[in-house]
């Protein structure tokens, strides 16, 4: 319940935050965003940083904007900010569908999209959606800014391409305004984290799937694309049979021996759930495709 002592700095600019990270490089230093992964870990003694650098109020890390067919989401947007943005809902339907299922309403009011992506919890709801959205993670460090495609960002459990003095500043998502995006999740009944979660982003023309991007989290130690499912969908009519067949390929290219296996679910069961929830994500896509722009 009681975090260990630490020093706290509130950064007001990205540059200041980077300087603080460099200044405290010899200490165990953590960036504090929404704090909804970090603070519970500190309260239960699993994490005990010496220095916290609060970047939650850095103006440049906020805001949601569309720039030439690219949606830009500042890393420190709270989940509820993203969900409150019509632009985000229109241009990143899979990502917003996944964000709707993060935690609970209090968590969504406080946790940030950037904190989530940078923390790289395999059971988080966003990695699959970030992959199918073809998101690019923009990071800034002492040597300037660089852009990392989502599929190169994650190395494994809690491990990313972020350097020690780098900060995730924004997420860029190419507009998927013409696509339907869904997310189906099997939450742990206790923690609410995803035992498995499947994000789907489809373009459908006259009942036929033109493009399909399917991604999953919770199953492996980081988010994965389900290529065989995608292949089984493209060019097919989006019907029950296609969906069932496609979902049946969910684990084809995954090493099921490396599936997440913990108190919440065994690897074998996760493999099963991955098929079931792939099917549900696709079924939800059918419903969305049928509903004429319900959310708008």
């Amino acid at each position: 319940m009681y975090p260990d002592e630490f020093d706290y700095y509130e950064a007001t600019t990205i540059e200041e935050a980077i300087d603080l990270l460099e200044d405290n490089a010899m200490e165990e230093t953590e960036l504090l965003a929404g704090g909804h992964s970090l603070l519970p870990a500190m309260k239960t003694g699993l994490s005990s940083p010496d220095v916290l650098i609060d970047i939650g109020e850095v103006d440049a890390l906020h805001g949601v904007a569309v720039d030439d067919e690219t949606l830009e989401i500042g890393a420190m947007n709270r989940y509820s900010d993203v969900l409150g943005s019509e632009d985000a809902r229109e241009h990143a339907p899979a990502l917003t569908a996944a964000i709707e299922r993060v935690g609970d309403r209090q968590v969504r009011n406080r946790g940030t999209i950037g904190g989530n992506l940078a923390h790289a919890d395999p059971a988080s709801d966003l990695p699959g959606a970030a992959l199918v959205s073809d998101a690019t993670l923009v990071v800034q460090g002492p040597d300037g800014e660089r852009s990392i495609p989502a599929d190169e960002f994650y190395y494994g459990m809690y491990a990313t391409d972020l350097g020690p003095a780098e900060i995730l500043t924004k997420i860029e998502v190419p507009s998927a305004a013409d696509a339907v995006g869904t997310y189906a999740k099997k939450p742990s009944p206790s923690s609410g984290y995803a035992m498995v979660g499947v994000a789907a982003l489809l373009t459908v023309d006259d009942g036929t799937v033109e493009s399909a991007r399917i991604g999953a989290n919770g199953a492996m130690d980081h988010g994965v694309r389900l290529d065989p499912v995608e292949e089984a969908l493209v060019g097919e009519s989006l019907d029950e049979e296609t969906i069932a067949t496609a979902a049946g390929h969910a684990t084809d290219e995954l090493d099921t021996a490396l599936m997440m296996d913990d108190l919440q679910a065994s690897g074998e069961f996760r493999a099963q759930l991955l098929e079931v929830y792939t099917e549900r994500a696709l079924e939800a896509a059918v419903d969305r495709a049928a509903a004429p722009a319900a959310a708008d």
Binding site: M1, Y8, L32, G35, H36, L39, G56, Q106, N109, R110
Partner: peptide, 30 residues
């Protein structure tokens, strides 16, 4: 009230700038 330290029970929910948050998962300095 305080009911847990895992940020799950919600007993400590207050409104912070008009949004419901779990006050056990916010530092007072924040």
């Amino acid at each position: 009230n305080v009911g847990c330290e895992s940020s799950l029970c919600g007993a400590c929910t207050v409104h912070l700038d008009d949004d419901a948050v779990k006050s056990c998962t916010v530092l007072a300095v924040q």
